[in-house]
Each structure stands twice: as structure tokens, then as C-alpha cells.
Simulated assay, not measured.
Amino acid sequence: MISNEHIDRLLSARGHVIGTNGEKIGSVGQVYTDDETGQPNWVTVKTGLFGTRESFVPIQEARVEGEDLAVPYTKDHVKDAPGIDPDGHLDPAEEDRLYEHYRLHGGRTYTEATTGTAGQAASGTGTGTDYDTTGRGTVGHDTSGPTTDDAMTRSEEQLNVGKERQETSRARLRKYVTTENVTKTITVEREEVRVEREPITDANRGAALDGPAISEEEHEVVLHEERPVVEKEAVPVERVRLDKETVRYEQIVNEEVRKEHIDTGGADDTRR
């Protein structure tokens, strides 16, 4: 059971109301307690685009989860609750309408709800609603309920469109290593043996006759060649970074709104 200590913690932490599927319905607005017992029995949930609408939810079967309040209703059930002005006090008729709405969604039955007393906001004082009966007399009477005054109020929904910032995606830079073959051509040199023969002349005769006339000899020459030598060096080639730019475009919002119309019902206008 939800206690007043739980309520104080929810209000101070500005917790949220969570539905049956774990979906966040809205933030906790006001908590209404019973006039006789002082126990909390209603909480308002701030819903709508800017949190301007407050819907009533019974908390007899709710449970506290950390700084949030979990209720056995879906977000659509709560948003479809009867529109009642959270003016600091619930009269019995308003409470009956609310319990009638939640009767099919796991709340108390309509009979059980109407046997108690209406509640008032935990953070405010209860105020009743008085109708001025000192004015002029009411012309006609209401066929849908008790006659309250001489007119009815026509209301309509207005579409308030705002913007909220959401995270849509993330971009990141990642560096990885690949291997590829690089082919380069260089010029190399090598030494090869070439046999040269020259006839005996007066110029080389002395060198030709130096040594024994007939003998066995061996002459050796060392050959050289160039070979490619490969070295690899890591060098920086460019700098890459991420940046953001804002692109503005127009988006059309299409939503249905409800509007009340008043039918005169074929009333005659008699002129004299």
C-alpha cells in the first residue's frame, strides 16, 4: 500500500508514473488524499506535448519502484481518463466518473468507489464549487442531468505543436589497418666476366715473357652485384575529424482535433 512517506519521496524526487508495459506515462503532478482517512488515493500525471494536461490515476493498486510509481494501466487508458480540473479537491461526482472509467481496467468497482469520500490534493486545501443562485432565473432545464445554469459551454481542442530534441543516430571515426602490395622498379648493377685477348707486341712482350715458358696458372677475379634493400617507415599523411552542421527543413504535422458544436434543435424565433 502506498503510504504518505512514499508520497513525500515521489513529490520531492519529481518521479514518473510507469504503465503496465514499462512505458513512461508522465511525471507525478499532485497527490490527492482521502478527506476522512488522510490516505493517498489519487495521483495526477502530467501528460501531453508540454506536460500541460494532468490525468487522474487511482493508486490503491500502485507500487513504488525507486523514485517512480508503477500503476496497472496503460498510457492510453490514463490519457483517455475523464478530463477533470486538478483544482485541489475532488467532489464525489468527479470521483465517480474516474472510478467508472478505471472499473474496466483493474481499478475498484464503481460501487466501491462511490462509498468513500472525495479527496483533496496533498499539497493544497480542499475547495468546493458553488453555483450562483442569486442571479436571474434559469431559462429551460437540462435534459442530460441536473439544471446548473442557463447556458452550456462549447469547447474545442487546439493543436499546440512544439519541438523536442531526440537522439537519432551516432557517427564515429574508427581507424583500422589493411595490407596491400606496392610495386616499385629500381635500377641495379652487377659485374660479369669478359675475356679480352690481345696480340703480342713490342709494348707487352716483356710482360708476356715474364715467367716460365711453359707452366700451369690460374687467375681469379671477384664479381659484385647490387641487390634491392627494402625498409618501411610510418609517416603521417592527413588529419581526419568529425564535425556537425545543422540542416533546417519544414515538416508538416497532421493531427485530428475534436470540436464541439451546439445544435439549436429547431428552436423557433418569434418576433413581435
Rank of each mutant, 00 (worst) to 15 (best):
111 T>Q: 10
185 T>G: 01
165 R>D: 10
2 I>C: 03
116 G>P: 01
96 D>W: 04
49 L>D: 12
259 K>I: 05
92 P>L: 14
90 L>P: 01
234 A>S: 13
207 A>Y: 11
5 E>F: 05
131 Y>W: 13
133 T>Q: 14
205 R>N: 09
208 A>F: 13
90 L>M: 15
83 G>N: 09
191 E>R: 05
87 D>M: 06
87 D>G: 12
231 E>F: 00
238 E>K: 08
184 K>N: 12
208 A>R: 07
53 R>Q: 10
271 R>C: 01
181 N>F: 04
76 D>S: 11
250 E>A: 11
168 T>Q: 09
50 F>L: 14
18 I>C: 04
130 D>K: 14
69 L>Q: 03
271 R>H: 01
42 W>I: 08
31 V>T: 08
181 N>A: 14
189 E>R: 14
235 V>N: 00
118 A>F: 01
207 A>P: 00
125 T>E: 13
39 Q>K: 10
162 G>Y: 06
108 R>C: 01
59 I>L: 07
23 E>K: 15
71 V>P: 02
137 G>A: 10
3 S>R: 07
223 L>C: 02
203 A>K: 14
48 G>H: 05
27 S>G: 12
197 R>Y: 14
5 E>V: 11
21 N>A: 14
199 P>F: 05
151 A>H: 15
256 E>F: 05
66 G>T: 10
136 R>K: 15
35 D>P: 00
75 K>G: 06
155 S>G: 03
59 I>M: 08
54 E>M: 02
238 E>F: 01
17 V>Y: 01
13 A>G: 04
151 A>M: 06
80 D>P: 00
79 K>Y: 10
68 D>N: 15
260 E>Q: 12
72 P>K: 05
129 T>M: 08
152 M>Y: 04
236 P>K: 08
178 T>Y: 06
256 E>N: 08
250 E>G: 06
16 H>I: 05
253 V>R: 02
129 T>D: 09
110 Y>I: 08
136 R>G: 15
248 R>Y: 07
238 E>A: 14
120 Q>S: 09
118 A>Y: 03
232 K>R: 11
210 D>K: 14
20 T>Y: 09
56 F>A: 10
247 V>S: 04
202 D>I: 12
50 F>P: 01
104 L>K: 11
20 T>P: 00
61 E>D: 09
190 R>L: 04
40 P>E: 03
190 R>Y: 15
159 L>R: 04
238 E>L: 05
56 F>R: 02
23 E>Y: 09
71 V>E: 02
248 R>G: 02
159 L>S: 04
71 V>Y: 02
152 M>N: 06
244 K>R: 11
7 I>G: 00
145 G>Y: 04
17 V>S: 02
167 E>A: 07
242 L>R: 03
209 L>K: 12
22 G>L: 04
259 K>G: 01
202 D>C: 03
125 T>S: 12
96 D>L: 13
121 A>V: 00
240 V>T: 10
255 E>R: 14
101 H>P: 02
169 S>K: 12
80 D>A: 12
91 D>A: 03
208 A>N: 06
66 G>F: 07
267 A>G: 00
261 H>R: 11
75 K>C: 08
73 Y>E: 02
160 N>P: 00
86 P>R: 03
184 K>L: 13
141 H>D: 11
29 G>L: 02
166 Q>N: 09
164 E>P: 01
246 T>D: 09
80 D>T: 06
72 P>T: 03
104 L>Q: 12
61 E>Y: 12
249 Y>Q: 06
37 T>L: 13
236 P>N: 03
